[in-house]
Design a protein around this nucleic acid. Structure first.
Length: 428
RNA sequence: GGAGAGGUACCCAAGUGGCUAAAGGGGGCAGACUGUAAAUCUGUUGGCAGACGCCUUCGCUGGUUCGAAUCCGGCCCUCUCCA
C-alpha cells in the first residue's frame, strides 16, 4: 500500500482484522462451510458494528454437560471474545412432542416447567465457559408451535426425499431395513427453520450435526435469507476410546463431576487420546501438543505424567487449583499406595441396627456399591470386595453390622456404613 | 389392499415341545498383569434368598399340553415386492 488513498489503507487494515478473526474461528474446526462466506460476515460485522449471530441447538432434556459439549462451548466463547453473540435454541418443541419412533422409546415427554428448569440448568453449566451477557436463550416452540399444517407442508416442499436420505443415519437405517418415521424427516426441517426464525449467521455443532446444519443453509436461502455458515467441531472420543462422548453411552466426563471422579476418569483414558484432549478441551496450541507427543515418544516424558498434567489442568478449570491438587493426592494414595482416599462416603442405613446379621451381598447392594444383590454376589465371587480391608470370600456370607464398617468394591467404589444408635431409635 | 419375510436378554444373533434363565459374538462389570493407559488372559453378565429354592423374561393376548421362546387362534409392529 504505497501512497494510495486513505480508503485503500482503511480497507487493508480491515482485511487484516477479518483474516485474524477468521483464523481464530476456523481453528480446530472439523469443517467450515464456507470460508468466503464467513469472511464476508466478519467483514460486515466489523464495518457495521453488528455482531454475528451464532446459533447452537440445545436438547431440552435434563442437561449434564460433558467435555464433548465443552469443545463446542469453547468455540462459542471464541466467538464471544471476538464480539459476537450466542443464541441457544432450546428444542423444547420437539421435546414436548417426544419421539414416537422405536429408536429411543423412552424419550420422556417433558412438561413446560421441566424444560424451563432444564434450560436454566444448561445455561448455568454453560456459564462456567461462556459470557452470559453475550448469550441468549430462545425456545423454538415460540415459532414452531404456531405454525399451521399448511406452513409445515410448504416447508416440507422445499426439500427432497433424496436429499434427506443422504444423511448417513437415515441411509444406514434405510439400507438395513430399519424403520424411519416420516416425522423424523421433519426434525431436520424444524431445526433448519429455527435458523430462519432467528436469522442465524453461523450455526455450530458436532460433526454429527453436519447434515442438519447444511439443511439450515438450504432452507434459509429458500426463505430469502443469506445461508448460515455451518461450522462443525470434532467429536470428542469418550472414555471407552472408541465412541463419541455421550451421556447415553455412559462414557462421559461431566462438567459437574466431583474433582476426584473427574480426575480418575481422565486418568483412565487411553494414552493415544491425550493429544486430542489437550487440543480440544484445553485448547493447547498445535506446537505444544506435538511437543508433548514427541516427549512421551522419546521417553523424556512419561505418558502417565503427561496424563496427570492433563487431569490436573482440566479439573482445575472446573473446580479450581486446590481441588485439582487434592484430587491428584487422593488419586496417588488410592492407586499407587493402595490406601483409602482422604474422604470416604458414608451411607446411613436406618433400618439396620448395630449387631444385626445381614447378608453381605444385600449390604453391598443396599449401600449403592452394586445395582442389585445378585450383581453384588458376583462381585464378591470374583474377588472384588473387601470388608474392613479384608477380601471377602463367600457371597452368601452373613455380616454383622457395625457402625463404621468399611466396604470396598474394586478400587473406586468405597463406602463406610453409618448406623444410627440403636438405643436412640428403639422407642418401644 | 395382496404376497412374502421377520419381532429372542444392553446390542447383534442361534434356538422350532421338556436337558433353556435361553448357544455364539459384541458391549459392560470384575480379577490377573500394569501406569486405574493400551494389549493379553480369566471369570461373570435377569431379580430375590444364607441355602433348598422361588419369581420374572423370547412383540401382545387367548388356547392346546403334565410341560411352550418353540404348536394353534386373534391382535400389534417392522421390512421387501406388487397395487
Amino acid at each position: 500500500m504505497d501512497k494510495s488513498s486513505p480508503i485503500a489503507c482503511e480497507d487493508a487494515r480491515l482485511e487484516a482484522m477479518v483474516q485474524e478473526q477468521v483464523n481464530v474461528i476456523a481453528s480446530r474446526t472439523e469443517s467450515l462451510v464456507t470460508r468466503p462466506e464467513i469472511e464476508e460476515k466478519v467483514r460486515n460485522s466489523l464495518r457495521t458494528g453488528k455482531p454475528i449471530k451464532v446459533k447452537l441447538g440445545v436438547d431440552p432434556s435434563a442437561p449434564d454437560l460433558h467435555l464433548g459439549h465443552v469443545v463446542v462451548m469453547k468455540k462459542l466463547r471464541e466467538f464471544q471474545e471476538l464480539g459476537h453473540e450466542i443464541y441457544f435454541v432450546i428444542g423444547d418443541f420437539t421435546g414436548m412432542i417426544g419421539d414416537p419412533s422405536g429408536r429411543s422409546q423412552t424419550r420422556p415427554q417433558l412438561s413446560e416447567e421441566e424444560i424451563l428448569v432444564n434450560a436454566e440448568t444448561y445455561r448455568d453449566q454453560a456459564t462456567s465457559i461462556l459470557d452470559p451477557a453475550r448469550t441468549h436463550t430462545v425456545f423454538n416452540s415460540s415459532w414452531l408451535s404456531p405454525m399451521t399444517f399448511t406452513e409445515v407442508i410448504r416447508l416440507g416442499s422445499r426439500f427432497t426425499v433424496a436429499r434427506m436420505l443422504e444423511r448417513d443415519d437415515f441411509q444406514n437405517r434405510y439400507e438395513k431395513g430399519h424403520a424411519i418415521g416420516i416425522h423424523e424427516f421433519l426434525y431436520p426441517l424444524a431445526q433448519a427453520y429455527d435458523s430462519v426464525a432467528i436469522g442465524a449467521d453461523v450455526e455450530l455443532g458436532g460433526t454429527d450435526q453436519t447434515f442438519n446444519l447444511l439443511v439450515g443453509r438450504v432452507i434459509q436461502k429458500e426463505f430469502g435469507q443469506d445461508s448460515q455458515v455451518a461450522i462443525t467441531m470434532p467429536l470428542l472420543v469418550g472414555l471407552d476410546g472408541v465412541e463419541k462422548m455421550s451421556k447415553s453411552l455412559g462414557n462421559y466426563i461431566a462438567v459437574k463431576d466431583p474433582p476426584n471422579e473427574m480426575y480418575g476418569k481422565i486418568m483412565s483414558i487411553s494414552d493415544s487420546l491425550m493429544a486430542v484432549y489437550y487440543r480440544l478441551v484445553l485448547l493447547d496450541s498445535e506446537r505444544e501438543v506435538r511437543q508433548m507427543e514427541a516427549d512421551t515418544q522419546s521417553g523424556k516424558l512419561h505418558p502417565m505424567d503427561a496424563k496427570m498434567a492433563l487431569a490436573r489442568r482440566i479439573v482445575a478449570e472446573f473446580h479450581g487449583l486446590d481441588a485439582a491438587s487434592s484430587a491428584e493426592r487422593d488419586f496417588l494414595r488410592v492407586f499407587r499406595e493402595n490406601e483409602l482416599p482422604g474422604e470416604v462416603a458414608e451411607v446411613l442405613l436406618r433400618d439396620v441396627r448395630p449387631g444385626d446379621e445381614v447378608g453381605l451381598a444385600w449390604l453391598i447392594a443396599r449401600c449403592g456399591l452394586a445395582p442389585s444383590s445378585g450383581e453384588a454376589r458376583r462381585l464378591v465371587e470374583s474377588g472384588a470386595v473387601k470388608v474392613n480391608g479384608v477380601k471377602a470370600e463367600f457371597a452368601g456370607a452373613r455380616q454383622v453390622a457395625e457402625d463404621g464398617l468399611l466396604l470396598q468394591v474394586g478400587k473406586r467404589r468405597i463406602c463406610r456404613v453409618k448406623l444410627e444408635n440403636s438405643l436412640i431409635t428403639r422407642t418401644g
